[in-house]
Every structure is written in C-alpha cells, then in structure tokens.
Amino acid sequence: MPNRGTRDALAEKIAGEITLSDDPGATLRKWRTDFDVSQTTLASELEVSSSVISDYESGRRESPGIGVVRRLVTGLLAIDERRGGERIRQYGRVLSAGFESDVVYDLREYPTARSLSSVYRQIGAEEIAAGEADRITGHTVIDSIRAITRLSSEEFIRLYGQSTSRVLVFTGVTRGESPLVALRVVSPTPNAVVLHGIDREDLWEHAADLARIDGYSLAVTTTPIDAMLDDLASIE
C-alpha cells in the first residue's frame, strides 16, 4: 500500500486545486476521472446520491466548502487504496520527482529490465525505427506541449528518473516534430521514445531519421491514454 506521507501530500494537492479553482466542479471531475472512479462509486463511498456528485461537478450546487472537499478527496483516495493504491503511487512518484502531475503523468522504475518489444505489445505500440538497445528499466509519460514549454533543459533530463534505459512516452502530439527536436538538445537520449495519439501515416517525415541518428527506438501508439497508463501500471 502507498505510504502515509505520499497519500497526505496528494490529498493536500487535490484539495488545494479544487478549493482554489475558478471552476471547482470541473477540477473535481478531472481528479475523479483521473482516478477512474465513477460518480456512482464516489457517491456510494460518501453515502450520498450520485446526483449530489453530479450537481457539484456541473455547478448546479454551490461550490463545495473545505469540509465537503475533504470528504470528496478522502473518498477518492480510500477507493484507490482498496484497489491497491496504484493511482496514489503513480502521483507520488511524479510529485517526489519534482514535477507537476499535468506535465508528467507517470514516472516509474521497473524491478528488472523488460524487453522493449514486450512493453510495446503491452501498450499497442508500433515500432517505426529500431534503436541500439532492446531493453528498458522504466518509463516516463509526459504531456508533450507542457513539457517542452515549461521544463528547463535540466528538468528535461530529470524525466529520465534513475536511468536513460527507459521509454519516454510523449502525449498530445500531432506529428511528433516538437518532442523529437527537443530531444536533440538533450544528452544522452533515452533507449526509446513513443509518440502517443498518432499512427505511422501521421508521423513527421523526418522522425525516423532523427531516431536512427540518435540511436533510440521510435514507436507510435493510438491506445487511449487511460488504457495505456493502466497497461504500463500492470508491468511488474
């Protein structure tokens, strides 16, 4: 189970975001869906009707006070803990690495090396260019635009976690040009890069050439992001 410090830090973060948001209902909905909890499940946890949760999220009810927010957050975390606590651990890894969870969705080290091909199969990725290494020991899932616009070069390197023997998964890409060009100024490069949300036909025409020059494997996947994060979380 996640440690208490991680849980408390995440609870404080979620509660703060909801309380300070210009649209608390939308922020609550974002966190509820991030935790893959339905309105009905959360309502059952809090022993209220699902219409209460719906009304808060839609703005039909007055913005929740701190006491209600605390109950909502506690309910989300309690549900996740009963499921094994993977979402809490996921956010804990990102927060402990010094990133915001809207920039880095997940950052994880594997207990042992995994073949790149097996990870690609896990997330439904198609390899476009082969790299110099065929095994990885971790992954980082990144919002492409936010990472490029908000992270310094030093912070970008921290995306590698403990090792460059990992796959960087860039989400929110249209052709892949921006993240691949950004990687050119970072040394060393990761073992693999996955561009999420596009297929081979959408890929920037020079993408495979850059990957071969820098020696990393390049792949694409259109697996929905929540399903992909769940698939990555199941890697043991």
Results as ranks from 00 to 15, higher is better:
M1Q: 14
P2A: 13
N3I: 06
R7Y: 09
A9I: 08
L10Q: 03
E12R: 10
I14A: 02
I18N: 02
I18L: 03
T19Y: 09
T19N: 11
L20S: 15
D22M: 15
D23Y: 09
A26Q: 09
T27D: 07
L28Q: 01
R32Y: 03
R32T: 00
F35Q: 07
D36N: 04
S38L: 10
T40N: 15
A43M: 11
L46N: 04
L46K: 05
S50D: 15
S51A: 12
I53D: 01
I53S: 02
S54L: 14
E57Y: 03
S58L: 13
R60Y: 10
I66D: 15
V68Y: 05
V69A: 10
R70E: 11
L72R: 01
V73S: 06
G75I: 01
L76C: 02
L76W: 04
E86F: 05
R89W: 08
R89E: 13
R93Q: 11
A97M: 05
G98R: 00
G98N: 06
F99D: 01
S101V: 00
D102Q: 12
D106I: 01
L107E: 08
R108E: 12
A113N: 10
L116M: 12
R121H: 12
I123D: 03
A125C: 12
A130K: 08
G131F: 02
A133D: 14
T140K: 05
I142C: 02
D143R: 08
S144D: 04
I145S: 15
R146H: 07
I148N: 09
S153C: 11
E155K: 13
F156Q: 10
I157G: 12
Y160Q: 14
Q162H: 10
S165W: 06
V169D: 01
V169R: 00
F170I: 07
T171P: 01
G172N: 05
V173W: 03
G176L: 03
E177V: 14
L180I: 07
A182M: 10
V185W: 14
V185R: 11
S187C: 09
A192Q: 07
A192T: 03
V193G: 01
R200N: 11
L210F: 04
Y216I: 09
L218G: 04
V220D: 04
T221L: 11
T223Q: 11
D230G: 14
D230I: 05
A233N: 13
A233C: 10
E236M: 12
